[in-house]
Amino acid sequence: MNLDKEDKITEKDLELLNSKLGLRSLFANKNIDLKKTLKEVKYENRLRELQEELVKLQTWAIKNGKKIVILFEGRDAAGKGGAIRRVTAHINPRYFRVVALNKPSEDEEGQWYFQRYVNKLPEPGKIVLFDRSWYNRAVVEPVNGFCSDENYNIFMSQVNDFEKMIIQSNTYLIKFYFSITKEEQEKRFTDIKKSDLKRWKMSAVDERAQLLWDDYTKYKEVMLKETNSEHAPWVIIEANKKTIARIQAIEHILKTIPYKE
């Protein structure tokens, strides 16, 4: 195999290619692609390192009774679910839960909007990851006509104080927004529709996402500006490359929460 000068691999690269993971990735496809294989192996190795640290973080949280809330927001098909799966892959399932709430019930619609989310907040030693959160009311609901202007305005006037109360109750709060381009979203929707295993992911809201792209953008920009508070800032993850987005999200979690081994 001929390699250009810029494609020359180092001794460290050779070690990676000769590892079990490297050899498995190398021969997974008929066409051997060294550069692609090295990217995959480096990603998997880095992900493994970070996941080991997440286990340490969780152990620290359990021992010290710490509460952790992580929000994963973003457009449809932005990769929120995939990132959550990488975060939770190896931590103790008894001490975390993923929350993805459905449409509120009739009783819930009569409650204070934040009540159903308060009921899902973690106990000491637990981690809760929201796959979409109370910020549905900031973007998805107004864009699709699921809430009134009054409900939207009330939410926007209360959310910063609500999050301050969460943090003041000895809880770590991290807010991620996974950002993708319109072209990337369209590509991912096409891939989902073509897959028998993924087609169920497409909802009626997803089907309208491309058509309503500009409306989503308008509400998203207001949300990021008005709710980017000092106590609960937004972390924007450029998510066109899923692997990079996952690594960045986990690195931020580990950097933000002051866990000790």
Score class of each variant (00 low, 15 high):
103 K>D: 02
249 A>V: 09
19 S>K: 01
199 R>F: 14
109 E>P: 00
257 I>K: 03
134 W>E: 03
114 F>E: 05
131 D>Y: 07
53 E>W: 04
38 L>I: 11
240 N>D: 15
126 K>M: 13
86 R>T: 06
44 E>A: 14
33 D>M: 09
146 F>S: 06
112 W>T: 12
224 L>N: 01
246 R>Y: 08
180 I>G: 00
23 L>P: 00
86 R>N: 08
187 K>I: 09
232 A>G: 07
5 K>P: 01
18 N>Y: 11
240 N>W: 06
224 L>P: 00
238 E>W: 02
227 T>A: 07
51 Q>I: 10
28 A>S: 14
241 K>M: 08
126 K>S: 08
177 Y>F: 15
75 R>P: 00
204 A>Q: 12
33 D>N: 15
43 Y>A: 05
32 I>P: 00
28 A>G: 12
223 M>F: 11
178 F>G: 04
237 I>C: 06
240 N>I: 07
100 A>D: 10
228 N>Q: 07
45 N>M: 12
241 K>T: 12
127 I>A: 04
7 D>S: 13
152 Y>I: 10
14 L>F: 11
158 Q>E: 14
135 Y>F: 13
251 E>W: 10
102 N>K: 15
12 K>A: 13
43 Y>E: 02
64 N>Q: 07
147 C>Q: 07
156 M>W: 04
60 W>H: 05
246 R>A: 09
56 K>T: 10
166 I>W: 01
10 T>L: 06
207 E>D: 12
240 N>K: 05
170 N>K: 15
81 G>I: 04
160 N>S: 15
70 I>D: 01
3 L>E: 03
196 D>S: 14
245 A>C: 08
86 R>C: 08
214 D>N: 12
191 D>H: 14
210 Q>I: 14
133 S>F: 03
61 A>H: 01
172 Y>P: 01
250 I>S: 00
140 V>E: 04
